[in-house]
């Protein structure tokens, strides 16, 4: 009896881990898109997720707009925030350097967080799940239907991005900019436009993450920094700049966190991601799927 319950407990933690891990993976993908083009870490990445959740709450719960409309509308609004971030905070910098870009995103993250507190207050908000709250029994564990949506949307994001980067000329241009911005601009690509595009895409992916996780874990104004840290840990674990790495890293961080919280200590749940981050930096800074050359020679 004890054995079975422990096994189902483990299964339950795994399910939770994969769910939150999917969100970390989305944040990590967002980091990578901007990082590949600009070499800067966007500290406002977590704020996109927070905004996605809270704007969705505003549209769906406060204004009573049906899900099928409020979902895309939220993504559009957050994408506009991402575009504004680039136009108002990143592009006007007169002496652009990676350092000043990072400082600008820290400032912007703080501003967005402050604005969210101003608008929504300090309370967490709930969102109705997409398809009810009736849990599905699964070998002694329970699966929230929303968890399936979360994983489903991660898959959808990955498929869309793969198609975008492989099949469209814009996606290929973005990849070219990631490899060598100078050469790309020599052959006629507008690198500034590509940076704008990378911010817009990261914001949109962040928004999706925020919308799908809010019915499970609620959302409040100061969630952004923590999401950014964990997404970054996922990024480093998978290898900075690598998309398959980001997905793998996100899921692993999610699993470690949920198993650690369940089996070791729930009070220090948030410390596990940091420990993973430090361990990876110590042992294999190029991450699981990044190559050593990338982390040493290019400015990665």
């Amino acid at each position: 009896m004890e054995q079975i319950s422990f096994a189902s407990q483990l299964l339950q933690y795994t399910i939770t881990g994969i769910t939150v891990g999917s969100i970390y993976a989305m944040v990590a993908i967002g980091f990578n898109i901007i990082y590949n083009v600009t070499e800067a870490i966007n500290f406002a990445q977590g704020e996109f997720v927070m905004l996605g959740g809270l704007i969705m709450v505003f549209l769906q719960v406060t204004l009573n707009i049906p899900l099928v409309l409020s979902f895309p509308l939220t993504i559009v609004v957050v994408t506009v925030v991402g575009i504004l971030l680039d136009r108002l905070a990143i592009r006007p910098i007169r002496e652009p350097s990676v350092l000043s870009m990072i400082i600008a995103t820290i400032g912007a993250a703080f501003f967005i967080k402050g604005a969210a507190m101003f608008i929504w207050g300090k309370d967490p908000f709930d969102l109705p799940p997409f398809s009810g709250r009736n849990p599905i029994a699964f070998y002694g564990a329970v699966v929230q239907p929303q968890s399936l949506w979360v994983v489903g949307f991660l898959v959808a994001v990955v498929i869309t991005l793969t198609l975008f980067f492989d099949r469209t000329i814009l996606g290929k241009a973005l990849r070219a900019c990631a490899v060598n911005p100078n050469a790309s601009s020599l052959v006629g690509m507008n690198v500034k436009y590509m940076i704008l595009l990378s911010f817009a895409m990261s914001a949109a992916i962040g928004a999706v993450g925020g919308i799908v996780i809010t019915p499970i874990s609620l959302m409040e104004y100061d969630r952004g920094a923590m999401l950014a840290v964990k997404g970054f840990a996922a990024c480093v674990l998978g290898g900075m700049g690598s998309f398959p790495g980001a997905i793998m890293g996100g899921l692993i961080i999610g699993l470690i966190e949920s198993l650690g919280a369940g089996l070791i200590s729930s009070g220090y749940k948030d410390a596990f991601a940091l420990l993973v981050l430090l361990f990876v930096l110590f042992l294999k800074p190029s991450g699981l799927l990044g190559s050593v050359e990338i982390s040493r020679i290019r400015k990665f």
Binding site: E39, A40, I41, F43, V98, L99, I102, I106, A228, V229, F232, V236, M240, L274, L277, L278, L281, P285, S295, R296, K299, F300
Partner: peptide
């Protein structure tokens, strides 16, 4: 290289 310190 880069700005790992900021996030750590």
């Amino acid at each position: 290289r880069g700005h790992y310190l900021a996030m750590a």
